[in-house]
Design a protein around this nucleic acid. Structure first.
Lengths: 223, 223
DNA sequence: TCAATAGTGTCTGTTAGACAGTATGGA
DNA sequence: TCCATACTGTCTAACAGACACTATTGA
């Protein structure tokens, strides 16, 4: 069975997401090879057998090799397939998105082969990368509304004000502050770091510092 | 790049879901070949190049070839991968679930190589099929709560009472009847077929017949 | 003291669930 | 008529959004 049919190419494409100036952005790389050499596209690569232990491992390797970043939150999105999505022939691309936290953005900025683009402006890309980016944004704005995903754009320690602004930026909509705090406190979603405060830039009064409670990844419903 | 690395096997596994006696069930097939010959497992098959036009097409072909059913609602779940999930070596399985409507159940019952099993009892299966079934149930019970997926277990025309009982069976929880009807009417989720009524078995008063409004697939939030 | 953000309390409209009630037609 | 299910109306409790209010510190 296996040997009477040719195997498709299997690759991984990663949509790195970050926040720049309250806008949700992705990272594109100039393609160094054909097809579409010289054009910006998502970070992608073939699965390496046998050393990749899973396609998630492939995604993390691609992030490290093509963008020099590691330790990111990575989540599988969906799988795209067909004879026409890649001019090289029938292919399978397993798409992932990953969250680039604030403190890792500088590493990306240093690389001349990478560009940071607001997700709304990342269109006209080769392959079916427009579609993959739409899927990533839909996931983060849909599921993100009631998960801890937006918190991953921040460093491990943050104030509730920063977290509030981050949710607003990711979802691109206003969220009532008191409802936000209420929800966050009801579910044990974040935990306060006793005795630790910091003054956010621009503010006068220092704010309590919180961190994501380890363990759970999704809490409840929408704010 | 492509030719320096071996390609993984790419297969599709399908979780057919149906309702039997108010219980959510799946369909397992006796494996006709090694590995795990003679043991029940999900319906699976390798992608056929070049005739499969996508992995979704592979899933539909597998349903037809291994269970003799077609025209079903099919949705991609997630992709599973790694060196150990299949004893034949590094493999990628793209998992789908599909909804088997009431009127197609007889076709499945006629096939001696298939068995219908409540999802809670479909455990201890080969490969990572337990995991795949869990993912399918989670998807249908999560997303299903606010989508039209449960309606696809019914024939095209149904009464609101039948639809209500179907949601309860799929989600395995009680749903308030008046809230259910209110929600359904507010969103234009179903449309009444003017002048058409039918008497559900056991009932005395005939009920209005509805159908899914063509087009939209997801409406709003939970009941 | 003023400015600026941090954080709290209260009102109100919406909505989901509970549940009682009416409607309809078969036996 | 009684019964079983179809369908509707109303009350209530929970909750999200609006928004005004207090708290805290730097300048």
């Amino acid at each position: 069975m296996t040997d009477t049919y040719e195997k498709p190419d299997v690759m991984v494409d990663v949509v790195p997401l970050m926040l720049r100036g309250e806008r949700l952005c992705t990272v594109l790389a100039m393609r160094a090879k054909e097809p579409f050499m010289g054009r910006p596209a998502l970070l992608g690569g073939y699965v390496h057998l046998p050393e990749d232990s899973s396609l998630g491992a492939t995604a993390r390797r691609v992030l490290l090799e093509k963008a020099g970043i590691q330790g990111l939150y990575v989540e599988q999105l969906s799988t795209f397939s067909g004879p026409d999505r890649d001019p090289r022939g029938w292919s399978v691309s397993v798409a992932y998105f990953s969250i680039v936290p604030e403190e890792a953005i500088d590493d990306v900025l240093m690389r001349p082969d990478l560009q940071i683009v607001p997700v709304e402006e990342a269109v006209g890309l080769p392959f079916d990368h427009d579609l993959i980016i739409s899927a990533a944004v839909a996931r983060v704005r849909g599921k993100g509304a009631y998960s801890d995903i937006p918190a991953r754009f921040l460093p491990a320690e943050f104030s509730l004000g920063e977290l509030h602004r981050t949710y607003e930026a990711v979802l691109a909509e206003r969220i009532d502050e008191s409802a936000f705090r209420r929800k966050l406190m009801e579910r044990d979603f974040v935990e306060r770091i006793e005795g630790l405060t910091k003054t956010v830039e621009g503010a006068k009064r220092p704010s309590q510092v919180y961190r994501l409670r380890p363990g759970l990844s999704v809490f409840d419903r929408r704010f």
